[in-house]
């Protein structure tokens, strides 16, 4: 099992709190929306997390002003 940070793009407004809380995981694009660092394809929507980032990710889920973030477990395939 691996924890992923899911970004609901239909809710996200690019306020940038998550990128501050997870600077090693998320960057921001021209318009302020989060970009997963070093990830390609759909891993930019379901971002795999290292255990060290879990706590900060939980904080980001709680503080996201648009409730656009969620954590979920995905079986490693």
């Amino acid at each position: 099992m691996k924890t992923q940070l899911h970004i609901d793009w239909t809710s996200c407004d690019g306020r940038g709190l998550c990128a501050e809380l997870l600077p090693g995981v998320l960057d921001r694009d021209d318009w302020g929306y989060p970009v997963a660092r070093g990830k390609a394809g759909r891993e930019r929507t379901d971002v795999p997390l290292r255990d060290a980032d879990l706590e900060a990710a939980q904080e980001a889920v709680v503080l996201c002003p648009k409730l656009a973030l969620s954590l979920h477990e995905r079986k490693v395939q």
Binding site: W9, D29, V35, G41, R44, T45
Partner: peptide, 13 residues
């Protein structure tokens, strides 16, 4: 490269 993989659907990619 910036928009790919970042949407509810695959319109960007």
């Amino acid at each position: 490269k910036l928009v790919t993989g970042r949407g509810a659907c695959r319109h960007p990619e």
